[in-house]
Amino acid sequence: MLEKHKKLEKNSILLLIFIIITISIGGLIEIVPLFRLETTIEPVKGIRPYTPLELAGQDVYIREGCYGCHSQQIRALRDEVERYGHYSLAAESMYDHPFQWGSKRTGPDLARVGGKYSDSWHVQHMINPQEYVPESIMPSYSHMATSKASLDDIGSHLEALRVTGVPYTDSMIENAYTDAMAQANEGEANTKDGLLKRYGKNTIVRDFDGKAGFVSELDAIISYLQVLGTMADLKDYNPDVVE
């Protein structure tokens, strides 16, 4: 055995071939299951890709490191479901790149924060969290109120996500900027209809930060927070049903 191995060590081509064979076996065992990944995503109605404004909000969320203190995954455990509502489904984060599950909870889980607070609460809470929650240690994010949301290249952002498998259509990419403006109520007349047609009639169109005139990062991040956990039609969901 040892003598045979000596041959292998002395012949570089042979060694290369055997290394490739060995790594392939390990690789196959790790990679092949991923081809069946979609079978782990539960069929649930209502999940749509983020609108351009929500996506810009997610960018702000990631940039500010919100995931460092807030998770976005309600585990299927009794106490979590009691507190936050229905446990998170894989389908609910299938269009998140990267996903925001997180594992650190200095602050509460945000997977179902959408619709829980009013826009003006979010605005004031971002500017001074302690005003409403005195015991909170969240820092102030008041700069979001005065910074313009980064929307100039939002179309190419959608395009890039399409490569990863998010089903953005050509018209979504083409109208990304207009849709973002329309959702923050800053668009030209009639642009709202296009947005609702592309992303569904439940899309929230509001001046999120309450300041007319420009689309701030607050507009973007609040639009993102307000849609979190609200898309899936959980009333019809049953984990045992396989489609």
């Binding site: 069946r36 079978t39 782990t40 396989v242």
Partner: peptide
């Protein structure tokens, strides 16, 4: 284990 079977089976 994940299984290579029909799409009707979820997970493995």
């Amino acid at each position: 284990w994940p299984v290579i079977s029909g799409d009707s089976e979820r997970g493995g």
